[in-house]
Each structure stands twice: as structure tokens, then as C-alpha cells.
């Protein structure tokens, strides 16, 4: 059960069968806020996902950008999720424009929080650069934005934070 909840970190609003089996007590709603720099190109593709303490891919939280053929540019995520069997249809949205902010809420199992897991963000823009692992943030209560921490990336991400 834990495994299902963790693998399918869903926006609470999305109707997905797995949600029915996820007791609220075992998962927490986490709001992810990613603000992009005004880089001035086409919409950015983003993948937000979890890796374990060893840096191994765990599960996808959110993908921005619908054309699967460009997903290969989100390199670390694309390589990692090659082993992931779950479909990402329900957690894929539109790409994020220059200077825009992506704010999504996902459910993350309690067992993953403060357990060495990290949130990673890969970004890519057409004719621009690919930034695998542009953001790496430890999934800890202390690092949550409640304590006012936002991290910035070297590429397109001006700031990334998450609230639990």
C-alpha cells in the first residue's frame, strides 16, 4: 500500500483509482512551487521527482510539458524512470512559460518524509540548455518552506520551495 501511494504522488484534485486506497493519515499534501527566470524562450519542460538517499530514482511527482518526444531532454528523470512502470498521464501538464510559476499539490507518503529522500527537478527548453538535476532539495520537514527556505537553480529555476 505504501508503495502505491508513494509511487503515485498525485495532485489531490486528480481522480485516480489509487487515491481511493490511500488513507489520508499515511500521506501528506505537499505544495511544490517552482518559479522560473525570465529567460525569454519557448515554454520550459520540467520534471519534479523523488530520489532515494543513494540518488536512485524513486517516483515522479509532476511533469510539465506534454510532448513525450521532448521528455528525453529531462535526462536524469528520463533515464531514471525507464524502470518506472506507472503511467504519467495524470500528472503531466502544460509546459511553463518564461518567468512563470508552477504551483502544484501532490500527496507524498509519510514514510518518505525525513527518510533521506530528495526532491529533484530537471529542466529543459527548446534550443536552450538541458539542466538535469537543476534543483536538489532534501525532503525533510525542516527544509519545507515553513521554515522559509527556497532554493534556486543554475539554469531556469529562480526559486523552488515546498510546503507541507
Amino acid at each position: 500500500m505504501n508503495k502505491i501511494v508513494a509511487t503515485l504522488g498525485l495532485a489531490a484534485t486528480l481522480a485516480f483509482p489509487a487515491l481511493a486506497f490511500a488513507p489520508a493519515a499515511e500521506a501528506r499534501s505537499v505544495t511544490l512551487t517552482t518559479q522560473l527566470r525570465p529567460y525569454g524562450g519557448n515554454g520550459a519542460y520540467l520534471a519534479i521527482y523523488l530520489v532515494d538517499a543513494q540518488g536512485r530514482f524513486h517516483s515522479t511527482l509532476r511533469v510539465a510539458g506534454g510532448k513525450a518526444k521532448y521528455h528525453t531532454h529531462l535526462r536524469d528523470w528520463a533515464r531514471g524512470r525507464a524502470t518506472e512502470t506507472a503511467r504519467i498521464d495524470g500528472i503531466t501538464g502544460a509546459s511553463v512559460g518564461s518567468g512563470q510559476t508552477l504551483r502544484v499539490t501532490v500527496d507524498i507518503a509519510d514514510a518518505l518524509i525525513d527518510a533521506g529522500y530528495q526532491i529533484k527537478v530537471d529542466t529543459a527548453v527548446e534550443d536552450g540548455r538541458d539542466n538535469p538535476g537543476e534543483i536538489t532539495a532534501p525532503l525533510t520537514s525542516a527544509a519545507s518552506a515553513a521554515s522559509g527556505r527556497a532554493v534556486s537553480g543554475r539554469g531556469y529555476v529562480a526559486s523552488f520551495k515546498f510546503d507541507m
Binding site: 510532448k67 513525450a68 518526444k69 528525453t72 535526462r75 528520463a78 533515464r79 525507464a82
Partner: peptide
């Protein structure tokens, strides 16, 4: 090809 009706053979960069 943009809509995936025709294949574009995009290489998948697996590890």
C-alpha cells in the same frame, strides 16, 4: 509527426 501519428524515431537516451 508532432502529434505522433507518424514515427519520428526520437532516440531514447537511456543510461
Amino acid at each position: 509527426a508532432t502529434f505522433g501519428v507518424l514515427p519520428d524515431g526520437t532516440a531514447v537516451d537511456a543510461a
